[in-house]
């Protein structure tokens, strides 16, 4: 008999350990909940809302909601996936996500989510922002036109790199990514190409220069398997968790 506490996810029991979120427990149990701004190495953020689930009847972010017993979680429903598709469409509409010429294509989380969720149309009129590219850094390029405001780079710099390189400024439609330099140029920050913040961008904003299309089609991350399968493959295993 399983003595560990558990909750119900789409009708199935999912065990968890105290302190885990619904997302962490689900992934550890081999259950995928779509997500974008969640990253196992950083403090959950809860901003993208892709992981929104119906938890005891209320719509809540699975990445920030603590797992508790006597909880019923609905995630894999047509209603929720419809909402997720709309959220992905809105993210595409806000930026210049021209997959055909974007070097992130095939390695892009937003694109992979679009495919995995079955987003078939644009859905909204696109904003077509025109933000200057920051190519000032000798090793890193910033294309602000693709930012989805997930703050993964902000959190990675702060929590892993121990730096304050990136931040979001402005509000509402005016919210945008900035860098921590008086000049506003990335070259004048202390970012390094080896920083976690550079590696973690899920879309094509923070790019290592002169890499481009070095990986052939067929060998890119999401050519091999869909993002849902990869998220489960990458999730911490219960054995590893017990050793923590």
């Amino acid at each position: 008999m399983n003595e560990r506490p558990s909750f119900l996810l789409d009708g199935d029991e999912v065990p968890f350990e105290p302190g885990q979120t619904v997302m962490q427990a689900a992934l550890a149990a081999g259950r995928y909940i779509p997500h974008l701004c969640y990253h196992p190495e950083f403090t959950p953020h809860g901003s993208c809302k892709l992981c929104t689930a119906r938890i005891n009847g209320r719509l809540m972010a699975a990445c920030t909601t603590p797992a508790e017993t006597a909880t019923e979680v609905e995630s894999e429903t047509e209603e929720l996936n419809d909402l997720r598709r709309t959220l992905v469409q809105m993210l595409f509409a806000e930026g210049n996500h021209f997959c055909p010429s974007c070097e992130k294509s095939g390695n892009c989380v937003l694109q992979a989510l679009g495919y995995d969720l079955g987003v078939m149309t644009a859905g909204f009129r696109h904003f077509f922002p025109d933000r200057p590219v920051d190519a000032s850094h000798p090793e890193i390029l910033l294309d602000f036109n693709r930012c989805i405001l997930c703050e993964l780079c902000v959190r990675a710099a702060r929590e892993v790199d121990g730096k304050h390189v990136f931040s979001l400024a402005g509000r509402g439609l005016g919210k945008h990514l900035i860098v921590n330099a008086e000049s506003g140029r990335l070259a004048d920050t202390d970012v390094k190409v080896t920083d976690k913040a550079v590696e973690v961008c899920p879309v094509g904003v923070i790019l290592r220069k002169r890499v481009g299309f070095a990986t052939p089609i067929g060998a890119r991350r999401y050519d091999k398997s869909p993002i849902s399968a990869q998220a489960l493959a990458d999730a911490p295993r219960p054995l590893e968790r017990n050793h923590d």
Binding site: P100, S101, C102, E103, V133, A135, L141, K209, G212, F213
Partner: peptide, 14 residues
């Protein structure tokens, strides 16, 4: 103009 050069061969073929 303004795009990184390594993007060009994939973009212009469109």
């Amino acid at each position: 103009q303004g795009r990184p050069y390594w993007e060009v061969p994939v973009m212009v073929q469109r």
